[in-house]
Structures are given as structure tokens and as C-alpha cells.
Simulated assay, not measured.
Amino acid sequence: MLKQRIITAIWLIPLVFGAIFGLPNEYFSWALLGVFLIAAKEWGRIIDSRCNMTQWSFTVTIGVLLVALNILVPADEIWLRGMLHPIFLGVILIGGFWWFLSFFMVLSFPKSANFWEKSHILKSMFGQLTLIPCFVSLLALKGLSTQASPYYGATLVFLVMLVVWATDSGAYFAGKRFGKRKLMPNVSPAKTIEGLLGGLLTTMIVVAGVMYASPEQELGLLIAVTLFTALASAVGDLSESMFKRVAKIKDSGTILPGHGGVLDRIDSLTAALPIFTLIYIAFWM
């Protein structure tokens, strides 16, 4: 399993890096649509793992909404005079509220599942709240650029991904080596408190790298934002685990050997990106 994960990461990371830094924003927004359609199809299995019609219906719904967003808010209009487009801001704020709610749903699981586990409508709504704010946040961050720093937004996106990858990797290896106390056994039996702490500690490598490259940053704020983003990513991971447990599926898909589906790979990002974007707007805009 670990060997497959490494092999997949070897070709996946350059592909992601190339898309973030190499594609112009207007092309990136449409390329990203394809990734989220795959994730939507996988979420359809969470809604109903046995009904292809339900899965495709949800995929089409997400596709229509994302296409509408790309048309209503073209890439060159996401940021105007330093202000985020109201539609994008509204979607990201809704996303922030969703992850606040999702956190308490995870904490109270399995009791929290009593009101949604048999409702296709609610699970579809939760899928929209998970995927669409992530899509919007990714475009919003990447769209941040100036003539002096054309890759500023792309760098921010990559930094969020580094924080998430550091958290996941640190949690995996620390959990394997030191894990004893279960974090949330009802949601994800394999995750441990020691693993989470190891993941948070690993993110300090990202902080050190940012301070080395940009020493004018305020260290305390940078550490706080990094840890908060890492914790948000953990909530995203646990949230997907919760929904998959109810759906009785181990992986959302099989498209990425060793990692499962696209949704399995971006579950942490679905929470980390909107939360980081809100923090950025609050403290740096």
C-alpha cells in the first residue's frame, strides 16, 4: 500500500504543481471542473452506493453549478480592486459555516447521523457544501496576483497543499510509530491522538520554510494560521470518513492507486482551503 501511495504521488505532485503554476487562471478554472466532477461522482456513492442514477444525478448537479460559477464569475473578475467577488465571498462564507457544523457532526457521531443517514437530499446538500466552497476557494486563492508577483496566488495554494500533505504524512507515520489512543474510534478507528499531534508538529517544517523564504512574516500569526489550517484539514478528513462509514464504503473510488479516489485525496483540502481563504481575507486583505 505504501509503495503504491509513493508511486502515485511521484506522478501526481508534478501534475498538480504544473497545473497550479503553469495554467492561466481562465484555463485552470475549467481544468479544475473535471477533477471536481470525478469527486462529485464519488460523493454520489456516499449518497447511494447502489444506485447509479443517483450518483450521476448528483454529478450533473455539481457540474451545472460549477459551470454556472465559471460563467458568472470569469477568472479575471474574481478579484476587482482588491475585493473578492460577492458571489465567491458568499460561497466561501457558507463553506466556513458548513465546516463549523460538520465539526460538531463529527464530534457527536454516530448520534448526529440519525437525522441525515437516510436522507438523499441532506447527503446531496452536504456534498455540495463540501465540494463547491473548495472549488471556489481554490480559484480565489490562485487568482491573487500582481505584476510584481504573478505567482503569488499559486504559491498560496501550494502552501495550503503543503500544510495538508505535511499533516497527513506526519499523522500517518507518527500514528504508525506512536499511536495508542484513538482519536475518534466511531468515525475512523485507525486515527490516533498521537498521529494528529505528529501531523501538527510536521507542519512546522512548512512554517520554517516560509520564514526562511519570507522572514518579514509574523512568526506567531504564521504558526497560528498553519495549525488552524491543519486542524481544519483533519476535520475534512474525518468528515469524509464519517460519511463513508454510514455508506459502508472504504474508499470513495479507485482512480488513484494506493490513495483510493479523488475525494479521498482532496478530503482534507475541502475544509482547509475555505478556512485558509477566510483567514487570509480577515488578516491579510
Rank of each mutant, 00 (worst) to 15 (best):
V160K: 06
S169L: 13
P150C: 04
L238D: 11
T203A: 12
L222D: 07
R177E: 11
G236N: 04
L156I: 15
I223S: 03
A247V: 03
K250Y: 06
A213P: 02
V246I: 15
S214N: 12
T202F: 15
Y151A: 10
S149H: 12
G153Q: 10
L222N: 08
V206D: 01
L183F: 14
P150A: 08
G198S: 09
M184S: 13
Y151H: 11
G153C: 12
L231V: 05
G199Q: 11
A190W: 01
A154V: 07
V164K: 10
I223R: 00
V210Y: 05
W165Y: 05
A224M: 14
V187G: 09
T202S: 15
T229D: 00
F243Y: 14
I193K: 13
L196N: 03
G198C: 09
A154Q: 12
V206F: 02
D237Q: 04
G236R: 01
S149C: 07
L222R: 09
A247P: 07
M242V: 04
M161K: 04
G195F: 10
A190S: 15
F228N: 02
M184R: 09
L156V: 09
A174L: 05
Y212W: 15
L201R: 05
T202A: 15
V207P: 06
L227G: 01
V164T: 13
K248I: 04
L201W: 06
S214F: 15
R177P: 02
R245S: 03
A174W: 04
L231P: 01
K248V: 06
E218P: 02
L222M: 13
R181H: 14
D237E: 02
